[in-house]
Design a protein around this nucleic acid. Structure first.
Lengths: 207, 207
DNA sequence: CACAGCGTTGAACGAGCGTTCAACGCTGCG
DNA sequence: CGCAGCGTTGAACGCTCGTTCAACGCTGTG
């Protein structure tokens, strides 16, 4: 009946990850204490070690979880049969939504480099996978002439930066809902690439 | 003869700040040890306390220094008598250049929230000043019809995010020079806003 | 009722790190 | 030459925090 759980109460593990992600976002990996993560859940820090081997494994699991979610989204968008600009738009909208409403605004922002090399490599490999997917969409748009020509790698980095940076200023109590932010970002980041007609309008004045 | 120095060897202080900024970027504020900062300069950690009261003051000075540089740039650009799109373009180009070549790729990225409230407030006030300046330029462009209409606050956040994020992936030994990155980002981030004619072309297809 | 084992506790340990400080060498001035 | 003081040293202290672990309660099963 209950959903598949590899070992001990997977739900509890996820609660811990959410608390940890929030703490890591606020204070950074080294700044957040294990005790702080536990207290927020009204458990003792010793108890965390029943679910995770150590603090690093918690960080690793946070990144894994975020990447699971984001790569699933990417696969979803890729499978669509629509134009690159629709794909990019949907990707940004959903990314912002996931980031703010599901991932404790934390996804790819927290200290990757705190991980030891073997774990680090695994995370980087998957993050690169996401990057490549994003670049592919942008490249397709450029090839089709729907997007202004440019370096898709740089554009992808710019998009990722703009979106991930939201973490730094977003205030759930602020005037902008996560939806409104997503719309505004998609408008700017996709609209800015899109050339009016289906054909070749020259790139903007600036050289 | 020597340039103005408030107290003890200002040059030495700046060397320390550079080392600290680099360490903070790699490991984060809490992850970087005072000893690590000192060792990189072949000094002992005790000696750092001759120049700074404590670790927090070093972090504070890093932010102050970065903001000095960036606000000077902003004032410079503001004083120009050119169109908003030229201003924005120049701001981005120079920001990228400063960030990568002068500020150890560290500017606004390092744990602000590690600062105690009084210091934090001072930094945030100046960062907001920069934000306001950026928004103002964007607003002017929208008012003049040179930029597509939108929420200038969101656009400003997106630009700041894209640029500051460079820190996370930039590799001085990589294929892209800081200049090339600046060009690519300015093309995308400004070009994306710019509407073709001087007048009112409707915003892109997507709603 | 007895037993098993999962989830939990809280105390204790040990390492790392920020910070302090008394003492030292070096440089330049009187 | 002797003195003053700046810049530097390195050892020591104390606190925080990650991690360990033996012991405990609770729940459900035989």
């Amino acid at each position: 009946m209950a959903p598949a759980q590899t070992h001990a109460s997977a739900d509890r593990r996820i609660e811990i990850l959410k608390s940890a992600a929030a703490a890591f976002r606020r204070r950074g990996y080294h700044g957040a204490s294990v005790d702080e993560i536990a207290s927020a859940l009204e458990m003792t820090k010793g108890n965390l070690y029943y679910y995770f081997r150590n603090k690093e494994e918690i960080l690793y699991a946070c990144h894994e979880y975020s990447l699971d979610v984001l790569l699933a989204l990417l696969a979803d968008v890729r499978a669509e049969t629509s134009t690159p600009d629709h794909k990019l738009r949907r990707l940004i909208l959903a990314f912002v939504h996931l980031l703010l409403d599901e991932l404790q605004a934390t996804a790819l922002t927290i200290d990757l480099q705190a991980l030891s090399p073997p774990l680090l490599r695994k995370i980087i490999a998957r993050r690169d996978e996401f990057d490549r997917g994003l670049r592919e969409i942008i490249q397709q748009g450029m090839d089709a002439g729907a997007f202004a020509p440019g370096n898709p790698k740089m554009v992808a980095f710019a998009v990722m930066g703009a979106v991930n940076w939201i973490t730094k200023w977003y205030d759930p109590a602020g005037p902008m809902t996560s939806d409104a932010i997503g719309q505004a970002f998609a408008d700017y980041l996709v609209g800015g690439l899109t050339r009016m007609s289906g054909s070749s309008v020259p790139p903007p004045a600036a050289r």
